[in-house]
């Protein structure tokens, strides 16, 4: 467990957050550095979503400190976090399906032309920038005025990443961007994450999939029941160790032993619940 003492892009120190009686985060610390992918791992309900919501300004933390470039910050809203360079792409909420790609791309940051009451949303510029930016990320879009709903899940996540990069994000938070994707689509998204990293962004990557994490991650922080179980550098650990930690380590061995030979052969093909909705309390929306 090595944590550099030099300030990262963002440092989180002893963050705690409770919702009523539920302690979602307890004394969690982590650092994200420029040009690194920091994987946030953990079971459903481990506090991953709460942690990224604190980082992206949706929930203020109860205790602890956040520093950007070593300077303490407090976010009152997602807008504050955006201004500080933290962009978040949520798994299911990254894009608005019925709106066009370029309208989604610029939602909340529309380019304008003209003056005074005639200041207008410069749709032509928005279309053009979106096309160019997506091409630079290697995303080939035929028509940026088509609704986002016509894109595949992987393409949507890719557009969200391209948007964050374009708007000067320095820290990119990706909430399970590969969860609902097939193998090829997930590969596409991982490639865009690599590109964002090459451009010097610090990426926080949340995933359940150890293969995705191992393929792209530089650092791995494991959360369990709201606490950090430690941060590991890629060179100091192995995929097997990460895999075992993610699966619950000793608890899984016990389970394996318990199920033993009595397990029916079809058990491996049982559908596993993927949803972690219960983990996310509806955040209060304030402007």
């Amino acid at each position: 467990m090595t944590i550099s003492s030099a300030p990262g892009l963002i440092d989180v120190a002893s963050i705690s957050k409770s919702f009523g009686n539920v302690r979602a985060l307890h004394d969690v610390s982590m650092s994200v550095f420029s040009g690194e992918v920091h994987c946030l791992l953990g079971d459903n309900g481990a506090g991953k979503s709460t942690l990224i919501k604190v980082l992206s300004g949706v929930h203020p933390p109860d205790n602890g400190e956040m520093r950007i470039d070593g300077d303490p910050v407090r976010f009152g809203s997602p807008r504050d976090a955006l201004r500080a360079g933290i962009a978040t792409a949520y798994q299911d909420l990254a894009m608005i399906p019925l709106m066009s790609i370029s309208r989604n791309f610029f939602l909340g940051n529309e380019p304008t032309a003209g003056w005074g009451p005639f200041r207008r949303f410069d749709v032509a510029t928005a279309d053009e920038i979106t096309r160019v930016e997506l091409n630079q990320m290697g995303i080939a879009i035929r028509d940026t005025s088509q609704p986002v709903g016509t894109l595949s899940g992987g393409e949507r996540q890719s557009v969200a990443i391209a948007r964050a990069v374009y708007f000067g994000a320095r820290i990119l938070i990706l909430d399970e961007p590969t969860a609902a994707l097939g193998v090829r689509q997930a590969g596409v998204v991982l490639r865009y994450i690599a590109r964002a990293r090459e451009q010097g962004l610090g990426v926080i990557f949340i995933t359940h999939n150890v293969h995705h994490a191992w393929a792209i991650g530089n650092r791995f922080t494991l959360l369990s029941q709201g606490r950090s179980e430690g941060t590991y550098l890629k060179g100091e650990t192995s995929r097997e160790q990460i895999s075992s930690l993610m699966a619950g380590g000793a608890a899984l061995e016990e389970l394996e032993h318990e199920l033993g030979r009595d397990a029916p052969p079809s058990a491996a093909s049982w559908p596993r619940p993927e949803s972690d909705e219960g983990e996310r309390p509806t955040p209060p929306l304030g402007d």
């Binding site: 809203s77 990254a94 608005i96 709106m99 309208r103 939602l107 909340g108 949303f121 929306l285």
Partner: peptide, 26 residues
């Protein structure tokens, strides 16, 4: 043709997503 119009679509399309990218939904 205005940013406000884009916010109207965004607020109705997905209030949460619009809020997350900084649209003043309220």
């Amino acid at each position: 043709r205005t940013p406000y119009g884009n916010w109207i679509f965004g607020s109705g399309g997905s209030e949460q997503a619009a809020h997350n990218v900084g649209v003043p939904v309220n």
